[in-house]
């Protein structure tokens, strides 16, 4: 079985759990509450938690989705998830400017440890308080126009929108591996 591991990260309230739930073919597992066959490798003992979803699209091909823990501290679980991931998506709620700073810290944390392909997914872009893509990109520390990773608006509740976001990340990964998209 070939497995691609995709990490979905972002501040609390960005829609990580909903995102994984929308695309997963299994009921999303919160490892804080229970462990299943898929998460048996990680046997939760205390409060460490992350969401896990799965999408099998061939007899021997599956996509695993991991949501980072929601708390604002970077514990060793972050290290494990990031070191094992093939790519990641940073979800940011476009209408919560107070969380941009934390989103930037997440980016710094991951960039320091891994250079895997990533894209930014903006949720709640239809909110009246939502900031535009260019300004959010600046707030996340991308100061030069055109030098930020792909940014895509995503409705974490809609399966088609989430599939499109994951597709964008897969295409970005293909480009980084030198494949034709």
């Amino acid at each position: 079985m070939e497995v691609m591991r995709l990490v979905v990260t972002g501040p609390v309230g960005a829609g990580k759990s909903t995102f994984i739930r929308s695309v997963s073919e299994i009921e999303v597992v919160d490892t804080d509450r229970q462990a299943t066959d898929e998460t048996a490798n990680l046997k939760a003992k205390t409060t460490v938690a992350f969401d896990f979803g799965r999408l099998q699209f061939g007899p021997d091909m599956a996509l695993h989705l991991y949501g980072t823990p929601g708390q604002a501290r970077f514990d060793f679980m972050w290290n494990i998830l990031i070191q094992k991931a093939h790519a990641y998506m940073l979800l940011v709620a476009a209408h919560r400017s107070d969380e941009f700073y934390y989103a930037r810290r997440i980016l710094n944390f991951i960039k320091q440890r891994s250079q895997i392909p990533m894209i930014i997914g903006l949720t709640y872009t239809d909110s009246p308080d939502a900031w535009d893509e260019e300004t959010i990109s600046l707030a996340l520390g991308y100061t030069h126009a055109g030098q930020h990773p792909p940014i895509i608006a995503v409705d974490a509740r809609q399966r088609a929108s989430v599939a499109q976001a994951v597709l964008t990340l897969v295409q970005h990964l293909m480009q980084s591996q030198g494949c034709l998209v």
């Binding site: 070939e2 091909m61 897969v170 293909m174 591996q177």
Partner: peptide, 11 residues
């Protein structure tokens, strides 16, 4: 790295 056939099928 993930194989090209995997990425193509997933896309």
């Amino acid at each position: 790295p993930i194989s090209q056939s995997f990425l193509h099928n997933l896309a």
